[in-house]
Computed example of a mutant assay.
Amino acid sequence: MTGGAWSVLAVPFLAAAALLVLAGAPKVVRPGDLVRALRSTGLPAPAVGVRVFAAVEVLAGVAAVVVPSRVTGAAVAVLYAGFTAFVARALLRGGVLSSCGCFGKADTPPTWTHAALTGAAALVGAGVAVAAPADPWQGVGTGTAAGGLALVALVGFLAWQVMAVLPSVDRRAVRSASTRRV
């Protein structure tokens, strides 16, 4: 991958990889929400299988951050493509009325915006898988790393806001909150 392409994909790729870690870790410990979410869409979901999948998700995210490569890019792409398919399935079949466990205990039902964001992350992973950087950390000094880390954290935070917080800010939620202020 040319330096220019990696410079464009690096922040969204690293943010997507970090979100894999942050979303996978709670499911390793507490698989129940994802088990219920999968079952609500007609998919089999033994708790041990969910824990193993979540552990793979965490490991893939860590590996993608440490060593961005064709393999880790493909792993990110496949995981996010699967998440996109699951969110779309849940939306089309009417399953998952509450959280899948990706963001802890927060009630985060699926949305089409969530599906679009995970789809974009899959495409970013595919971009890295097709043309991985030869040396992704070449020339990255302390200042560049600090600024890059801040940007990755911001993008990851905004993506989390879109997937975990935005679903609770619909007209019904806003109307409900405004009627309580008397």
Rank of each mutant, 00 (worst) to 15 (best):
residue 47 A to W: 10
residue 94 G to Y: 05
residue 57 E to V: 09
residue 65 V to C: 10
residue 61 G to P: 09
residue 52 V to T: 09
residue 97 L to E: 15
residue 63 A to G: 04
residue 99 S to H: 11
residue 66 V to L: 05
residue 95 G to K: 00
residue 85 A to Y: 08
residue 49 G to T: 09
residue 39 R to E: 15
residue 91 L to E: 06
residue 76 V to R: 01
residue 85 A to F: 07
residue 63 A to F: 06
residue 83 F to N: 04
residue 103 F to C: 08
residue 87 V to L: 07
residue 52 V to Q: 10
residue 60 A to T: 13
residue 44 P to R: 14
residue 61 G to H: 09
residue 44 P to Q: 12
residue 91 L to Q: 04
residue 86 F to Y: 12
residue 106 A to V: 15
residue 46 P to G: 14
residue 104 G to K: 06
residue 103 F to W: 12
residue 70 R to G: 12
residue 66 V to A: 02
residue 101 G to R: 05
residue 81 A to G: 15
residue 74 A to C: 05
residue 91 L to N: 00
residue 100 C to P: 01
residue 69 S to L: 01
residue 53 F to Q: 10
residue 58 V to C: 02
residue 68 P to E: 01
residue 87 V to H: 05
residue 97 L to A: 15
residue 62 V to T: 09
residue 96 V to A: 10
residue 108 T to A: 12
residue 106 A to K: 15
residue 107 D to Q: 15
residue 68 P to F: 04
residue 83 F to H: 07
residue 105 K to Q: 14
residue 58 V to S: 01
residue 70 R to V: 09
residue 59 L to W: 10
residue 65 V to A: 09
residue 57 E to N: 12
residue 80 Y to H: 14
residue 56 V to T: 13
residue 36 R to W: 04
residue 41 T to K: 11
residue 81 A to C: 14
residue 96 V to T: 11
residue 47 A to V: 11
residue 99 S to M: 12
residue 36 R to P: 00
residue 89 R to C: 05
residue 86 F to K: 06
residue 53 F to E: 09
residue 96 V to K: 09
residue 67 V to K: 03
residue 38 L to D: 01
residue 37 A to R: 00
residue 40 S to D: 01
residue 42 G to R: 12
residue 81 A to E: 11
residue 105 K to R: 15
residue 54 A to W: 00
residue 82 G to E: 08
residue 108 T to V: 11
residue 80 Y to G: 11
residue 71 V to C: 06
residue 65 V to Q: 05
residue 100 C to K: 05
residue 90 A to F: 02
residue 60 A to P: 13
residue 83 F to A: 02
residue 51 R to P: 03
residue 54 A to E: 03
residue 45 A to G: 07
residue 60 A to E: 13
residue 74 A to P: 00
residue 70 R to L: 06
residue 51 R to M: 03
residue 77 A to G: 07
residue 43 L to N: 08
residue 57 E to D: 08
residue 95 G to D: 07
residue 93 R to S: 14
